[in-house]
Design a protein around this nucleic acid. Structure first.
Lengths: 336, 336
DNA sequence: GTGAAAGCGCTAACAT
DNA sequence: ATGTTAGCGCTTTCAC
């Protein structure tokens, strides 16, 4: 692989002139320029990005750290990020934390090592605080997506989990449900806490009272423990509806309910946060509070690039996008 | 951000000694080592990966180029790749070609510029040949996944599309279907051609004869044109079953059929290649030839790293994994 | 318009 | 066991 000196030699100029041609700045006589371009072609020259980044102190690389790339929600976030980044000539290194703060730390350290220009992070949990601090300490600009971190002031793009939860639970109450359970995600994430909060608020407002045994904590990404379902079913009275933390939990909940001979929505209605991805269902079934995942990604990237480019903006900036509740069969018993 | 010289100065040693400590090779007196480690901590020192890669001519970075990160199949491939790469201390830059050879080229050029150590590619189409040639020209090791390219000899991990197609179509014939249509992916991909081939083979063997008007070409990732469905329905006799190119096409086909008042499988059975991702369906519906996507990713990465490490292996190596056909409701009319 | 020198932060190779 | 020198491939700065 040839380098800038090879090109310079072949074109009978200095490497500085070649550099000017590559970057299109500084004065170069048209004739010289052509000689150089010709030499570059002949040698199949591709500038070495490493060397360039080293001297310029700019890598044109962003990191996107998400908890689970298999979740369609984050995949869509990734597309939003990638499209926006590409548009502004940045590349994105995709990192998968597995909802694991330690793995997340590994990736943050990688970010430092390869000198990314900025990071977009969906924090694994509140304990991600230490990882965020690393970014701060090293002066790497970042934007959070989806989840706030307790005690961290940072730019963020997220949904309104309280509001989404309120609407979903209100919908159940309107449909006549009085015994509504909830399966939350890991409560060390802000979205889980907010969804629980919205649930509690609406129950209280409806005078339905809060039953701790109707609340089960699970996780957004890992396997749902069927024992939780059994515990809920053993409650008296048995819940007639469940609000699940996200698409993933919903699917598994339905699965376990059916396994136990219960049908949805007749025996138990289900509402959830986050839709399936559009590709997945021939016939959408789940009542869901859907979020504009693609926009989460593209907006966060836009915000990040503004910070990187030194655009003067107030800090921290919080963009809170409203979910849209879509009523489907999983929560509607009677045909209208 | 401090550099190796700062550390050296603080520890009262040369930067070479610091380098030895960082890399844990060469002799360093324990006492010196401790001084250096102390200095590194104090300065929050993180070695500059760019400089290191530049001199070592090794980036410990792989590129994974896939046609669509939103397709669960490729997402799972990505996880397999990432997990295996991480295990061997490589990072993965994820690139999305959008089934678009031009965008793919952009990413290949990026690979050259950032000097990735190797690439894993699901080629967008046969026209990806030129992009593959770029990699070859610059001596960048690569492994293909899923799709062969006409006239390119390269390491590859892929499924057996012919066999999968054969089994799916045979299943339909066994169920009594005589009029079986097919909606293929873009025929400039080898998998599409192979699936069509398997379809034709089995029809011929069953003496059913091949009807060109039963064959429609679509695409794996982009929107299905409903006109294709109308054309199929207008055939005489009307097909009683359709073999679709992949999960994506299947879902859209079912959607359009239902829109036209036909039910699946009663009015028209559906079989397809590639399953949904496990997260997506509370109640799996589609009869599918499923492929071990995670293994595609991890095996390909393993092969690639062997090449990079100069392990002597025969070349090209082809790993062809068998699909598993799972019969579900979309193709079974009668309860047994 | 073009070039020479210096240096980005690191390590390989050769001292000592 | 540690240091010195040179150079990876590029750009910044200043000179001509």
């Amino acid at each position: 692989m040839s380098n800038i000196h090879d090109v310079a030699k072949l074109a009978n100029v200095s490497s500085m002139t070649v550099s000017r041609v590559i970057n299109g700045k500084g004065y170069v006589k048209e004739q010289t320029r052509r000689k150089v371009v010709e030499a570059m072609k002949q040698l199949n020259y591709v500038p070495n990005g490493l060397a360039r980044s080293l001297v310029r102190k700019k890598t044109h690389t962003l990191a996107l750290i998400v908890p689970d790339i298999r979740n369609p929600f984050f995949t869509t976030v990734a597309r939003g990020t990638e499209d926006m980044a590409l548009k502004q000539d940045y590349r994105v290194v995709l990192c998968n934390s597995d909802e694991n703060v330690k793995k997340e730390k590994h990736y943050v350290e990688m970010c430092l090592s390869i000198r990314v220009d900025g990071a977009i992070v969906v924090p694994a949990s509140d304990a991600s605080k230490q990882n965020i601090k690393l970014l701060t300490d090293f002066g790497i600009p970042f934007v959070l997506i989806d989840r706030e971190i307790d005690g961290v002031k940072a730019d963020i793009v997220r949904g309104d989990s309280i509001m989404g939860a309120r609407q979903l639970v209100q919908h159940l109450i309107d449909a006549g449900h009085q015994h509504i359970a909830i399966i939350t995600g890991n409560l060390s994430t802000s979205t889980s806490r907010d969804r629980l909060l919205g649930y509690q608020q609406v129950l209280a407002e409806a005078g339905l009272g809060f039953r701790p045994d109707y609340v089960k904590e699970s996780s957004y990404s890992s396997a749902l423990d069927p024992a939780l379902i059994d515990e809920l079913l053993a409650c008296s009275p048995r819940p007639t509806a469940i609000f699940t933390a996200n698409n993933f939990v919903a699917v598994q909940t339905i699965h376990f309910l059916r396994q136990r001979g219960l049908s949805v929505p007749e025996d138990c209605a289900i509402v959830t946060f986050d839709d399936y991805d559009p590709l997945s269902l021939p016939e959408p079934f789940l009542t869901a509070a859907t979020q504009p995942a693609y926009n989460f990604g593209s907006l966060a990237t836009q915000m990040l690039l503004e910070v990187i480019d030194g655009v003067p903006v107030p800090s921290p900036r919080k963009m809170i996008l409203q979910p849209e509740v879509i009523i489907r069969k999983s929560s509607v018993t009677h045909t209208r």
